[in-house]
Design a protein around this nucleic acid. Structure first.
Length: 197
DNA sequence: CGACCGATTGACT
DNA sequence: GTCAATCGGTCGG
């Protein structure tokens, strides 16, 4: 059986290669109240040569974390009200990252509900979009942007079970107006928590 | 400094 | 299905 790659190996890859390999990996956040764990089920790759990327026009104060080496976090604020979480990948000096678009709660459901200000039994809408997933993790500012993955920020753990390459769908990205045909969105086919389009 | 717009979401027809 | 909310980043003048 082919051994699965370590998280360190994955984030060292270019975004386009790392994005599908991050499917199945687990985001973990430790809080005073307890632990939140979410399995990644949808990602998108962004790169400095890509007109849809924040880094296309060069490094700025906001996008500087994307130019750090793989394993840094990039958090940005958009539409005046939402935050989105990225895992930076690749080498120092290259502006690229993987947007975490959706996930499946594994641990800390009550904390997630609280972060999302929801109390009903609708599990899907807790984490089936990039803004929702970030909010579920308790991200309500950009303070984590530029930090490195880890237990004191947001940790990234290997997939708990092997993800079959055949179960990953490859499609054009969502919500962009440039380079709309590039199939750089990856998601776990048939997973209920994938974002609606 | 003003204008435009966005890697979205939730409410509503 | 449509559309408003809401504001920081970025760029042109």
């Amino acid at each position: 059986m082919k051994p699965s790659r370590s998280v360190a190996d994955i984030v060292a890859l270019p975004a386009l290669e790392a994005a599908p390999l991050l499917i199945g990996c687990v985001l973990k956040r430790n809080t005073n109240q307890g632990t939140i764990s979410i399995k990644i089920v949808e990602t998108e790759a962004y790169h400095q040569d890509d007109p849809a990327s924040h880094t296309f026009r060069g490094k700025t104060l906001r996008t500087a974390p994307m130019f750090e080496r793989g394993g840094h976090l990039y958090v940005y604020f958009t539409y005046g009200m939402h935050y989105c979480l990225n895992i930076v990948t690749g080498n120092n000096g290259i502006g690229e990252a993987v947007l975490i678009r959706a996930g499946e709660p594994l641990e800390g459901l009550d904390l997630i509900r609280n972060n999302r200000n929801k109390s009903d039994n609708d599990l899907i809408s807790l984490t089936n979009g990039p803004g929702k997933l970030a909010q579920a993790l308790g991200i309500n500012n950009t303070k984590l942007s530029g930090k490195f993955i880890g237990p004191s920020t947001i940790d990234l753990l290997p997939a708990r079970s092997l993800v079959n390459h055949k179960d990953i769908a490859v499609r054009p990205r969502v919500g962009i107006s440039k380079a709309i045909d590039n199939p750089w969105r990856f998601y776990l086919a048939n997973n209920l928590f994938v974002s609606r389009t």
